[in-house]
Write a protein that binds this DNA or RNA. Sequence first.
RNA 1: CGGGGUGUAGCGCAGUCCGGUUAGCGCAUCUGCUUUGGGAGCAGAGGGUCGCAAGUUCGAAUCUUGCCACCCCGACCA
Length: 491
Amino acid sequence: MAREITSRQENYSQWYNDIVNKADLAENSPVRGCMVIKPHGYSIWEKMQAVLDKMFKDTGHTNAYFPLFIPKSFFSKEASHVEGFAKECAVVTHYRLKNDENGKGIIVDPDARLEEELIVRPTSETIIWNTYKGWIQSYRDLPILVNQWANIVRWEMRTRLFLRTAEFLWQEGHTAHATKEEAQEETRRMINVYADFAENWMAMPVLKGTKTDSERFAGAIETYTIEALMQDGKALQSGTSHFLGQNFAQAFDVKFTDQSGKLDYVWATSWGVSTRLMGALIMAHSDDNGLVIPPRLAPTQVVIVPIYKKDAQLDQISQKANEIKQKLQDKGISVKYDDRDTQKPGWKFTEYEMKGVPVRLAIGPRDMENGTLEVARRDTLEKDIISQEGVIEHVEQLLEDIQNGIYQKALKFREDNTYYVDDYEEFKTILNEKGGFVWAHWDGTGETEQKIKEDTRATIRLVPVEDNPEPGKCIYSGKPSNQRVVFARAY
RNA sequence: CGGGGUGUAGCGCAGUCCGGUUAGCGCAUCUGCUUUGGGAGCAGAGGGUCGCAAGUUCGAAUCUUGCCACCCCGACCA
């Protein structure tokens, strides 16, 4: 069989592209930097959405929707926010096309220039806080706990499917609170929701912490992040939660009267995860045979493939397969019975392997005689012959084992690629030759952070939030350091 | 936006240096027969503005100029 997926060892980024392609997740579109998310890829995203949405609802949030377009003037109201996003905004300047008088086809009508140009949202803080101004007068109006599922546009120079595209899908939570403490608590609550999702659903271990000044969200006081380690030793920021202080309330003049009758600005948070999680999912678990999806996010958890020569055999096998399918579905397991006669069994095996279906059952004439079937697990590629009698319980257990197994595998990988380093030369060597997370002391200055970045291309992924930080000496400057921070090269 | 590379059938490529039959090959597609426990075999068939535009020439996929797109490596970023 021809090897169609480039191995990770040979060319990691080609491997990634091959997985996206062969697993039918997404493809490039005619529009530069934008992607078409294909049905299989979108199904996985929908599973993620469903789980996250429930988690948001369970923590008291409600969905709403704000416009795609933001008046340009809104942007200039929060200084650091503008600075952060200005360079990557798409701008709508006209509202009409017309036929060119010189016969050159459709052109932008120069008479249809917008009085105020519109920004295609790169994030929605400004339009939301402009709106919240009208919603909030009193402490009785607070908190506001709103989330929206939306697309946003950030005009990126270099794009990669899922990891960085000009347009992407995400959710953005935007909350308003009466007190600083409550907003800070919300910020931490949501980063914990993300960590919970990453670990228990995506089976992807993450580190939690805060961002340094240079890596912080434009307009935030504090940014919390979850960072995962990919198989090539690079970190991937997988979700962020921001404590915005009163920055946006001040910019948009959103005040409320508190219980003592005093007027104050409202406290804010925002938090988001995006279709980038798809990239994380791929690079956390997949192998040289294709995608590996954690069972809890797999659109199809079990596929049943019949093997037969004669139609009579197929009828018999189908009866058994449908029976098993029904029983599995009764347990809440999603099952596909693939009885297409247009593809051969071997073809189907490879196909579902590339697409990452966690469990495959195969039933052939021999099985029908023996009362058995073949069960194959995607993560380890192990195959077993089991009795048809115990198949339901076996599959239920197997799905749990796979979910747990790939988490443990990813965790072990992270542990094997985590280093504690106190010597700068060793620090550089590790980042150059191995990658991974490097815990090292840092003097807390932007200068040092910048120098290390120039030297090694590694950035501070996060500053761990620790109760009893261990002080030391900065790996670069030798100056005193409060605690170790986590360095890595990142996506 | 810098450096490198590539645009030829749905996909992957050869042909381009050195211009010259009807532009090929593999995979995929379609038809037929045989097959079916890890991407089946044989036979046949269909499918092309050679990225776009202009130029040189009797003649351009091939040479010249300009443009566009995509990929890889940097800078910037979720």
